[in-house]
Design a protein around this nucleic acid. Structure first.
Lengths: 154, 154
DNA sequence: GGATAATGTTGTGTCACATAACAATCAAGT
DNA sequence: ACTTGATTGTTATGTGACACAACATTATCC
């Protein structure tokens, strides 16, 4: 028991794991980290993070959306959304008005400044995706998207 | 300026974004979250997280590996690895000996208890991947793995 | 032997999650 | 109309995975 399998230690410069290399979950995790890091780089100087970007996108395409619905669309819980929405508002990218028919809810709207920032971010995201997907052809990109959504939707 | 695009607010139960739905980075992020959540569920009661699992796998397949090499293999920085390795050691899953030829380094070895835990985790991971990939055929799974690795390797 | 590099470590900070509890408001049923 | 129960936004708190800077000890290289 407890045998020192190989005394000559595997202390080379690189190590691999056949087990991990066969797991899609592992590949997903590692790939996402790389892609998100490139996203962050692409947003240099904009103060834009993946979450904020997705929030701005959903708000612009769904004017008047409330926070609960926004959170559900992005898989973010209401409680965690609060400081994020506050950040967008204090940066004057988004307007929050009271919902006309529901006294509990707020209605979120993108304003001019937010639209300009989102447009700039979209331009950078395009270049970012082009960079990250450079090794894939058009059909492969579509298929990757399809497969990812298939996994996500169960 | 600052026009309330639609006065009838988009406050339905669900909201979508065509922009986000076309982005592979977004699909990657959302899918990874779902898959990792299922991984966590699958490890119920084992005290096993994705990072710990991957560390155990690499250590068993690379006996005597040092922390820097382990970190490089998994994309974890030395500094962040320290508490993780300590956790494995204090749980008696892994042994840390001084490296015979390098006084600075440690050599990490999986022990019997760690091997048993890893085996149980692997069994659960198999069921977890089967569950998560239920919607994909064999060829699709292979292709997803290939595409992910292509993206990651630039 | 002296300069330079590598290993493990400590400390600190950020960010994306999670959960529980709460006030205000709405909706539904009787 | 009034109570019951659900919903919205919020506060508070905790965790876990990252980042970066600085440091002591030990190797390496000339």
């Amino acid at each position: 028991m407890n045998e020192p399998v190989a005394l000559e230690a595997a202390d080379g410069l690189e190590a691999r794991s056949e087990l991990l290399e066969g797991l899609i979950g592992y590949a997903l995790r590692r790939t996402t980290i790389v892609v998100m890091a490139d996203f962050i780089d692409a947003m240099e100087g904009l103060g834009m993070r993946p979450v904020l970007f997705s929030m701005l996108a959903v708000i612009r395409e769904n004017p008047g959306i409330n926070q609960t619905t926004l959170g559900r669309a992005l898989g973010i819980q209401r409680a965690n959304l609060v400081p994020l929405v506050n950040e967008l508002i204090s940066r004057r990218l988004v307007d929050r008005r009271r919902h006309p028919k529901d006294g509990r809810a707020f209605a979120l709207f993108m304003n001019g400044e937010g639209g300009l920032l989102l447009d700039e971010a979209i331009a950078r995201v395009s270049r970012h995706e082009e960079r990250v997907l450079a090794g894939l052809g058009d059909a492969e990109r579509r298929q990757l998207l399809t497969l990812l959504n298939k996994v996500r939707s169960g």
